[in-house]
Computed example of a mutant assay.
Amino acid sequence: MRFKEEHHETSTDRRGRRRIPFRFPAGRTARPGGHRFKAEVSGAGPAVILIPGLASSGEVWQGTAKHLCGPRQCHVLTLAGFAGQPAIEGVLLPQVERQLADYIAAHKLGKPVVIGHSLGGFVAMRFAATHPDLVDKLVIVDSLPAMGAIQVPGVTAEQLKQMADMTREQMLAADDASFSANQRRTVMTMASKPEDVDRIVGWGRRSDRKAVAGAMAELIADDLRDDVARIKAPTLVLGTWIAYKDYAPRAATEQVYRAQYAKLPGVQVEIADTARHFIMYDDPAWMYDRIDRFLK
């Protein structure tokens, strides 16, 4: 098992003493049960872990890390099977959860801030629910506890599993041309600028299709609407609606968010008015402002 950690830090502390960044030797093998995600580390100070979404690279957080890091140390992940990272066998999300707990302990990160986008947001909230004492604050960027229940809140666990199995089978059965075309059509609803669409599509093409289909199925099948009650960390949820304006008005979309997070005490929900799913690309200033105020 191998993972990569890169540091880009040459800072000093408050007394002017130079900080020496911790580095792993290139290609060092992690201990058994180690981390199969890539972690790129920059900055110094309290830890922030940033988790990208389905088939996305940690590069999606580049602007966010630049904004946040300096007084904080950012750990930007790319999950196994996504954007060129080697895939792993078995169900992905529980493994990420265990490995993330190990990573926090191994690096003595204490209680980091955890920020996740889309699938990464789902991973972050699941982690905060199962490890409530390991998260200081939680930021969820356009993700819900039960994606499969958006249209039918009363959907059963068996129905969610059927939906998940069907989605996985369809993704795996598609020929390469159809899969690529569907991927681009989907991404075009998620980001506004062509260059961002191309970048996101490129990560998808470098992702392992089996890993992507499996993770998508996990996301559909799981339902955390009750589990979020176990989260102790103050939580900020940033949602979007503009891509769905033709069939779901803003008020209806916001109600979905509030209903799905109803059992999370003290959750703050904010809805962007101009950004699509990739808020960090469509309206980074809005996102940074909300995160800054929340972290302060």
Results as ranks from 00 to 15, higher is better:
residue 118 S to W: 07
residue 111 K to M: 02
residue 129 A to E: 01
residue 104 I to V: 14
residue 110 G to V: 05
residue 106 A to T: 08
residue 151 Q to V: 13
residue 125 M to N: 09
residue 139 V to P: 05
residue 95 Q to I: 09
residue 143 S to M: 14
residue 139 V to I: 14
residue 107 H to E: 01
residue 102 D to W: 10
residue 95 Q to L: 13
residue 157 A to F: 05
residue 129 A to V: 00
residue 115 I to R: 13
residue 150 I to C: 09
residue 97 E to F: 02
residue 124 A to G: 11
residue 121 G to N: 08
residue 102 D to T: 10
residue 105 A to I: 01
residue 135 V to W: 09
residue 114 V to G: 08
residue 156 T to A: 09
residue 107 H to D: 03
residue 139 V to S: 13
residue 109 L to P: 05
residue 141 V to W: 12
residue 157 A to W: 01
residue 118 S to K: 07
residue 139 V to A: 14
residue 114 V to H: 03
residue 131 H to T: 01
residue 156 T to P: 09
residue 137 K to Y: 04
residue 155 V to G: 04
residue 109 L to D: 08
residue 99 Q to F: 07
residue 115 I to P: 02
residue 139 V to T: 12
residue 129 A to L: 08
residue 127 F to Q: 06
residue 123 V to N: 08
residue 152 V to R: 13
residue 96 V to W: 04
residue 111 K to G: 00
residue 99 Q to N: 11
residue 119 L to A: 08
residue 98 R to M: 05
residue 141 V to F: 11
residue 144 L to R: 06
residue 136 D to K: 15
residue 104 I to H: 02
residue 141 V to R: 08
residue 125 M to L: 15
residue 153 P to W: 14
residue 129 A to P: 00
residue 101 A to I: 02
residue 134 L to F: 03
residue 102 D to V: 02
residue 137 K to P: 01
residue 126 R to W: 09
residue 107 H to P: 00
residue 155 V to N: 00
residue 138 L to Q: 00
residue 125 M to V: 04
residue 110 G to Y: 04
residue 103 Y to F: 11
residue 99 Q to P: 05
residue 114 V to S: 02
residue 137 K to H: 06
residue 120 G to R: 07
residue 121 G to C: 07
residue 131 H to V: 00
residue 151 Q to T: 15
residue 142 D to Y: 13
residue 110 G to E: 05
residue 114 V to K: 10
residue 117 H to N: 14
residue 132 P to Y: 06
residue 133 D to N: 13
residue 124 A to P: 10
residue 108 K to G: 10
residue 98 R to D: 06
residue 124 A to Y: 05
residue 138 L to F: 04
residue 114 V to C: 04
residue 112 P to N: 13
residue 102 D to I: 08
residue 145 P to R: 01
residue 152 V to G: 02
residue 122 F to R: 10
residue 151 Q to K: 15
residue 103 Y to A: 04
residue 143 S to C: 13
residue 133 D to H: 14
residue 140 I to A: 06
residue 116 G to C: 10
residue 124 A to S: 15
residue 111 K to E: 00
residue 137 K to E: 00
residue 101 A to E: 08
residue 140 I to Q: 07
residue 131 H to K: 03
residue 103 Y to V: 00
residue 114 V to M: 02
residue 138 L to A: 05
residue 151 Q to F: 14
residue 100 L to D: 01
residue 99 Q to V: 06
residue 123 V to M: 12
residue 112 P to G: 12
residue 146 A to V: 05
residue 133 D to M: 09
residue 137 K to A: 09
residue 136 D to S: 14
residue 152 V to L: 10
residue 139 V to E: 09
residue 128 A to F: 03
residue 115 I to E: 04
residue 119 L to N: 07
residue 121 G to H: 04
residue 152 V to C: 01
residue 111 K to S: 03
residue 139 V to H: 11
residue 102 D to P: 01
residue 145 P to I: 06
residue 105 A to G: 03
residue 121 G to K: 05
residue 117 H to Y: 05
residue 101 A to M: 07
residue 148 G to E: 01
residue 132 P to N: 07
residue 146 A to N: 09
residue 134 L to K: 15
residue 158 E to S: 14
